[in-house]
């Protein structure tokens, strides 16, 4: 499995500039500006319904802004753990991860699944038979193994039990080291564990403050 790309090789920082997203008359993101410093992890927090997931969708290229500009994404490869796991139900945990990796991935899949504490017996079981916490781990491994320029994790640790959360957080931090990443979370402890820069998205849906956790 290849190592994550060298973040310094990227020229332009990934950023949203005064981005607004409307669905019909409804404004779901209002003039948001946000920069993801290259090679660092940014944690995005804020109350429910403020537009965090829409911000994620803009960064993943799934939503086109109604106005404003997005920079640094043109040639950017992406990986994500979505708020819903979005796993192929009929495939095994290992096959779900392999789906997004080059054929040369080798044992990286098994190493990743082991690192997040997924029992070996669960690796080759169809994911529809796994528990919510196990599925979340599979989605997290799938997001963190590909050598993508941008990694976006939307509430990635929800459903993972407290006993193994520290190990999962440590492995996540290790995989994100030196990479450009955005993690949506409501938990300050996760922000601290990931060594992330905290950005708060507040009504009226603009970034209000920014500080290093």
């Amino acid at each position: 499995m290849s190592a994550p790309r060298d973040a310094s090789a990227r020229h332009e920082a990934i950023a949203l500039h005064d981005v607004t997203v409307r669905y019909g008359a409804q404004v779901v993101l209002d003039r948001v500006s946000l920069e993801l410093p290259t090679g660092t992890t940014t944690a995005l927090t804020g109350p429910n319904g403020v537009g965090k997931t829409t911000t994620v969708r803009v960064l993943l290229g799934l939503v086109r802004p109604s106005s404003g500009r997005v920079s640094g994404l043109d040639t950017c490869t992406r990986a994500a753990a979505f708020q819903e796991d979005r796993l192929c139900e009929h495939l095994s945990a290992a096959a779900n991860v392999r789906l997004v990796l080059p054929r040369s991935a080798g044992s990286a899949v098994e190493d990743g699944l082991r690192a997040v504490g997924l029992d070996e017996a669960a690796w080759h079981v169809r994911v529809r038979a796994l528990s919510g916490g196990q599925r979340r781990r599979v989605a997290l491994v799938r997001a963190l193994l590909p050598p993508a320029d941008l990694v976006v994790l939307d509430e990635p640790f929800v459903g993972i039990d407290a006993a193994s959360r520290d190990a999962v957080l440590a492995w996540t931090r290790e995989r994100l080291a030196g990479r450009t990443a955005l993690v949506v979370t409501h938990d300050p402890a996760e922000v601290a564990a990931l060594g992330a820069t905290l950005v708060r998205l507040d009504a009226p849906r603009t970034v209000r403050d920014q500080d290093v956790a």
Binding site: G61, R78, A79, F82, R86, C88, L99
Partner: peptide, 24 residues
């Protein structure tokens, strides 16, 4: 549609997408 978005984000090659998402 959510799985199709996932394959877009990860730039999954189309033959793999057909086997994993389209055919099922």
């Amino acid at each position: 549609a959510r799985l199709l978005e996932m394959t877009r984000v990860f730039a999954v090659p189309w033959p793999r997408r057909v086997a994993a998402v389209d055919v099922p």
